[in-house]
Nucleic acid binder design. Structure first.
Length: 500
RNA sequence: CGGAGUGUAGCGCAGCCCGGUAGCGCACACCCUUGGGGUGGGUGGGGUCGUGAGUUCAAAUCUCGCCACUCCGACCA
């Protein structure tokens, strides 16, 4: 309420966060900035990821990387530059990405003849321009041609962690930036079945990660033709629902068929010594996941992190008047927590007041706070405060470690349960176009509606309502009905939503 | 690229209508105070007012051009 009033007085306090109810976009930007996640950079559309934001990304990266390795993948690295001609080898692919590519045309600067600074040296023009990768299919498949000769070379299961550039017209921190960090897996298989299996396997890796680690429930599905990746035969995706009722595509896994193998002439000899093109997949998630995390759990006091992604899970804040006696207690708790694999920071910075630290760690989303003051030392207790519910409790030193352990688990699961309840209650079946528009405007979320399967219908709905088909859920129940727009017969409902 | 808006200290803004050489809050530095939820008080540092031209004795303020950014569209992980 305080923030609300202050907001309209126009004298924003330095660290208040705009309430979600006032302006969701401002709320989001406030959290990014005030939780210390990212800053705008000097380059339009790019962001500086600050240590706290990067630490969250690192947690995500490490967890995902372990999952990739557990499913037989290895990491490699390919160049950031792609010769322009590579991009045009696959027709749909170039069509999809041409409009958002950064292009390198020269390789040298020189002093301007008029002394006004540095200019591009015209004599250093590249014979062939280089594209800064918007995704790496082309350069990777150009390499795979040399790596694959026989079925014995398959499957080829490679992932790369990289940065990519897509020159977007409008950007938002983490959700859409001109440069972003991601991983992209690129695999080659001997058969269609194997490649499809891989595509679905990796989709499930993403979905499990989102649900178990990010505490963010997702819908697994497949994209309509309109929304498919440029060059894919099928695009599988996980879709999440943000707190403002808009959907967010959190990860994609593509079955590429033989499109890239044909474009880059990647053939192998099978056991019968017959030549065939290999079957491909690619799959990726990006720093957008950090944005998804913010919008799934955070509140008007700042970021809320699930314990599995918090750069540290517990912070111990001594009350300044306590003196040095608190050190022994704090170190004892720290040692016990660390023995249990729980990460903890003891904040001994005596230039900041404890109340300031409380607010600071709340904004940064640290799941649990332990405060130790004189009162506690006398009573052999500490104060435990959880970020998600704001609940505070006084706990005996004898049970504090166990309480922390179980509370962290509880935070992880209750964040998921809360988000899951929100998702479930925001999938609304509708049976008419009027109802469709009504729900979209008043409630938002996913709308489950019959669709005639045509791109024309999808385009018209998008044009009229801004909603797109987010996905056709996997294992979607079949049900006879009629398309909400055209009235043509339909065999299943699909999920529509406005999306980020 | 269309529509709207904004550029004044690190951040957020006032001043502009009505021209007279720049101010507030936060942040920052120092002193005292306070210390279980962003202590209170004092002192101080920091700005060619986005940029170029024009009008004027005088421009943050008026006029024109340019640039940048933000928001809403189109595009999109």
């Amino acid at each position: 309420m305080r923030t609300f009033v202050v907001h309209f007085l126009g004298t924003f306090m330095a660290k208040e966060i705009t309430p979600r109810s006032v302006d969701y976009s401002a709320w989001y930007n406030d959290i990014v900035s005030k939780a210390g996640l990212a800053d705008h950079s000097a380059v339009r559309g790019c962001m500086v990821i600050k240590p706290h934001g990067y630490a969250i990304w690192e947690k995500m990266r490490d967890d995902l990387d372990a999952r990739f390795k557990a499913t037989g993948h290895v990491n490699a690295y390919f160049p950031i530059f792609i010769p322009k001609s590579f991009l045009s080898r696959e027709a749909a692919h170039v069509e999809g990405f041409a409009k958002e590519c950064a292009v390198v045309t020269h390789h040298r600067l020189m002093n301007a003849p008029d002394g006004s600074g540095v200019v591009v040296d015209p004599s250093a023009k590249l014979e062939e321009e280089l594209i800064v990768r918007p995704t790496s299919e082309t350069i990777i498949w150009n390499t795979y041609r040399d790596w694959i000769q026989s079925y014995r070379d398959l499957p080829l299961l490679i992932n790369q962690w990289a940065n990519i550039v897509r020159w977007e017209m409008r950007t938002r921190p983490f959700l859409r930036t001109a440069e972003f960090l991601w991983q992209e897996g690129h695999t080659a298989h001997a058969t269609r079945e194997e490649a499809v299996e891989e595509t679905v396997r990796m989709l499930n890796v993403y979905a499990d990660f989102a649900e178990q680690v990010m505490a963010m429930p997702v819908i697994r599905g497949v994209k309509s033709a309109n929304e498919r990746f440029a060059g894919a035969e099928d695009t599988y995706c996980i879709e999440a629902l943000m707190q403002d009722g808009k959907a967010l595509q959190a990860g994609t896994s593509h079955f590429l068929g033989q499109n890239f193998a044909k474009a880059f002439d990647v053939q192998f000899s099978n056991a019968q010594n017959q030549l065939d093109y290999v079957w491909a997949t690619s799959w990726g998630v990006s720093t957008r996941m950090v944005g998804a995390l913010i919008m799934s759990h955070s509140d008007d006091d700042g970021l809320v992190l699930p314990p599995k992604l918090a750069p540290f899970q517990v912070v111990i804040v001594p009350i300044p008047t306590t003196g040095e006696a608190v050190d022994a207690v704090a170190h004892d708790i720290m040692n016990q927590l660390q023995a249990l694999g729980i990460s903890v920071r003891y904040d001994t910075d005596d230039t900041k007041r404890s109340g300031f630290k409380f607010a600071e760690y709340e904004m940064r989303g640290i799941p649990l706070r332990v405060a130790i003051g004189k009162r506690d030392l006398e009573n052999r207790t500490v104060e435990l405060a959880r970020r998600d519910t704001k609940e505070k409790m006084t706990v005996s030193l004898d049970t504090v470690v166990e309480t922390i352990r179980t509370t962290l688990d509880d935070i992880q699961s209750s964040l998921y349960n809360r988000a899951k309840a929100f998702l479930d209650s925001n999938i609304t079946p509708v049976n008419s176009y009027a109802e469709f528009k009504e729900v979209l405007e008043t409630k938002g979320g996913f709308i489950s509606a019959h669709w005639d399967g045509t791109g024309e219908t999808e385009d018209r709905i998008k044009e009229e309502t801004k909603a797109t088909i987010r996905c056709i859920p996997l294992n979607n129940p079949q049900e006879a009905g009629t398309c909400v727009l055209s009235g043509a017969p339909s065999t299943q409902r699909v999920l529509f939503a406005k999306a980020y």
